[in-house]
Design a protein around this nucleic acid. Structure first.
Lengths: 336, 336
DNA sequence: CTGAAAGCGCTTACAG
DNA sequence: CTGAAAGCGCTTACAG
C-alpha cells in the first residue's frame, strides 16, 4: 500500500504537493499535476481515510439505526437504504449501520458513536409520534436530520424531510372520483398516530371539496395487518352496500381490503376502487396490482443528505422539506 | 472532547497507562486502574476511533453492499441487517453500507473501500449462482465471507455460511406427510439457480424416502411472483385433482398457491397443505398464516461475523457452515 | 507555485 | 508496574 510520502518521492515533489493534487488540484501547475497524477496511478495510491479523518476530524460517515420492530415491517426499507447510500456516496460519504434500543434508552449509543468519532451525524427514520430522540440529539448538539415529523403540538425539535400524506390521500380520492367513485372510505390507524391523522385529514378535505360523504366512512384498524384491513372493509361494506372506493393508510391494509372484496365476489377496480400507501413490493406482485402512493425515495434521500451535510454548518430546526408522493395507478383502482 | 493526554494529566499518569487501562487493564495495579477510570469517567473521555485505526490499521468496519434488485425483493433484509449489525457490535465492530453495480463491474468499489481503509473486509449476500465477486476478492486477497454458496461445480472460492435448503424442503415434505398428505408438489424456479436445485432436490429425496410420487409434481415458475405461483398451482391442480400438498420455493410463490386455492374454493390447510420459504413478514400477516421455513438469521449473522473476524487471521476457502432452517407451522398446513 | 514542519490522538516496542 | 518517545498517514498554516 503506497503512502503519500512514497508518491511524493516518486513524483519528486513534496507531500504537500501530492495532497494538493488530490484536494486542491487548481493550486498546481498543469505539468506538475500531471506528473503527480501519473505517480498516483503508477503506484496505485489511495489516500488512507483514517489519517485524513484524524487530521480533519470529519469521518464522512453517517449513522443510521437499523429498525427492529417485528410487528411493523418496513417493506420499503431496502429501497430507502439503497437511496440513502447512493445519496451519501454522491457526496463522498457512507452510511454506518448500528442497533440501539428504541426511544430514549438508545440515546447513549448515538452519543457514543458520535463522541468516538465513528460518525459525523445521524439520519433518523421510523420517526414515531412524539419521538424523544430528536430533542435529545438537539440538546447534545449532535447533528441529525429526520425522515418524518415528530408531530409535536409545538415546533419540531430539529430539521426534517417528510412526504405530504394529506396531499397523497387527496390525490387518491380525486383519482377515484375521476373514475366515477362517489362513496369513498378511509382505512386508518389509531388516533394517536400523527401520520395517520395527517393522511386521514387529506382524505376528509378532498371528499368535502368534491362534495362526497365522509360520515361513517372512516374506520380505524387496531394494527397494520391484512386481517385488520379485511375486517374493517367488511364493517364498511356491511354498513354501506353502495361503497365504491377505499383509500387505505397502508399497502397492508389495502391488501386486506382486496381480500375481503374477493371473498364477497366483488372485483377490485371494477366494483370498488382501492388504493394503498408506500408502493411496497407487494403492490406490484398481487393481482390486480394495487394502486398506491409512492414515496419519492431518491428525492427524500437526496434532501436528507444535502441538509445534514450542508457545508454552511449543521442544520437547524427551521429546515423543513415536504415532498409530494406519486400515485402509481394499477388495476385495483382502474381496470385495464 | 477530552483526549488521552488530558486524562493522563488528570490522573497523574502517563498516556501509556491510560491506554493500558482501556486496552489491557490487567497490566495496571488495581489502585492505579481505579484512579484512571475515575478520571475517564469525570472527563467523559471517549477514545477517538480514527486515531486508533490509524495506528493499528484496523477500522473495525465491515462492508455490506445494499442490494438493489427491483425484481427480486429481499423481504427479510431488515431482519438480516439487524442481525448482522448486532453480531458485529458484539465484537466492537460496525457495518458500513455501500452501493455497487452488480457482478464484476462492482468490484472496483469493493477494492477502493478496502484500499482506502474504510473497511477491513466484506460480507457478501444475495449470492448468485456463479457469482463472480468471490473469486475476484480472493484474487485480491481482500477478506470476505459469503452468505450463500456460489454453486460452482468446482470448489467454492472462499468461506461461506448457508442454510441447508434441501433439509428445509425435506422438513416441509415430512411435515405435510405427517398431516396425511400423499401427493405433494414442488413450486420451483429455473434450473439455472443452484438454490432452487438444492431445495428441489430435498423435496424429491424426501418424497422418495416416504414412498410418495414426484413425477409431474415439480413445476418451474418463470419469476418469483404471486401470479406465477398461482399459475403453476392451477397447472398442478388441473393435471392432478388429488394433489393435497404444495412445497413452494419462496413465500411469494406460496402466496400465489394460496390465492389459486382460494379461487377454486379449496381451503389451504384443510384441502391442501402449503409451505413457503424464508418466513417473511407476509407469512404471518396473511390468513390462514403461511407455514414457512425460517432462516436462523441470528445464527447466520453470528457465524458470518465470527468467521470474518477470526483473530487467527482472515478466513480461507475451507471454512464452511451449513445451518438448519426451522419450520414455522401456521394455518396453511395445519388448521388450528 | 512549492516545500519543511507541526500536529491530529492514539498504540506499542523499549527501557527503567 | 510505569513512562518517554516514536510513528501511523494524512492536512494545513506558514515561509520562501
Amino acid at each position: 500500500m503506497a503512502t503519500l510520502k512514497q508518491v511524493a518521492a516518486h513524483a519528486e515533489v513534496s507531500v504537500q504537493t501530492v495532497s494538493n493534487a488530490l484536494n486542491a488540484p487548481h493550486r498546481l501547475r498543469p505539468d506538475t499535476l500531471e506528473r503527480v497524477n501519473r505517480s498516483i496511478e503508477l503506484l496505485n495510491y489511495r489516500p488512507n481515510r483514517n489519517a485524513r479523518s484524524l487530521r480533519t476530524s470529519a469521518v464522512e460517515l453517517i449513522g443510521y439505526c437499523v429498525p427492529n420492530w417485528p410487528n411493523q415491517t418496513h417493506l420499503v426499507m431496502d429501497q430507502f437504504l439503497h437511496a440513502l447510500c447512493a445519496a451519501a456516496e454522491r457526496t463522498g460519504r457512507h452510511i454506518l449501520l448500528f442497533t440501539a434500543p428504541p426511544g430514549v434508552d438508545g440515546m447513549p449509543v448515538y452519543d457514543d458513536l458520535h463522541a468516538r468519532r465513528l460518525v459525523d451525524g445521524f439520519v433518523l427514520s421510523q420517526t414515531e409520534t412524539h419521538d424523544p430522540r430528536h430533542g435529545w440529539l438537539k440538546e447534545q448538539k449532535i447533528p441529525f436530520i429526520s425522515f418524518g415529523r415528530v408531530w409535536k403540538e409545538t415546533t419540531q425539535p430539529g430539521p426534517w424531510v417528510d412526504v405530504d400524506g394529506a396531499a397523497g390521500s387527496a390525490m387518491a380520492v380525486r383519482h377515484l372520483h375521476e373514475a366515477g367513485r362517489r362513496r369513498i372510505a378511509f382505512l386508518s390507524w389509531s388516533k394517536s398516530s400523527g401520520l395517520a391523522e395527517d393522511r386521514l385529514g387529506g382524505w376528509r378535505k378532498a371528499c368535502k371539496e368534491l362534495g362526497l360523504p365522509t360520515s361513517g366512512l372512516a374506520v380505524r384498524c387496531r394494527e397494520d395487518s391484512i386481517t385488520e384491513g379485511a375486517r374493517a372493509t367488511a364493517e364498511l361494506l356491511d354498513a354501506d352496500p353502495f361503497l365504491d372506493g377505499i383509500v387505505a393508510l397502508s399497502d397492508i391494509l389495502a391488501l386486506g381490503a382486496l381480500r375481503e372484496l374477493g371473498r364477497r365476489g366483488l372485483t377490485p377496480g371494477v366494483d370498488v376502487g382501492v388504493t394503498g400507501f408506500d408502493d411496497s413490493p407487494l403492490a406490484d406482485v398481487v393481482s390486480p396490482g394495487l394502486t398506491s402512493l409512492r414515496q419519492p425515495m431518491d428525492d427524500i434521500a437526496a434532501e436528507l443528505i444535502s441538509i445534514l451535510t450542508d457545508p454552511d454548518g449543521p442544520p437547524d430546526a427551521s429546515t423543513e422539506r415536504l415532498l409530494h408522493p406519486e400515485l402509481v395507478i394499477r388495476g385495483s383502482s382502474a381496470p385495464g
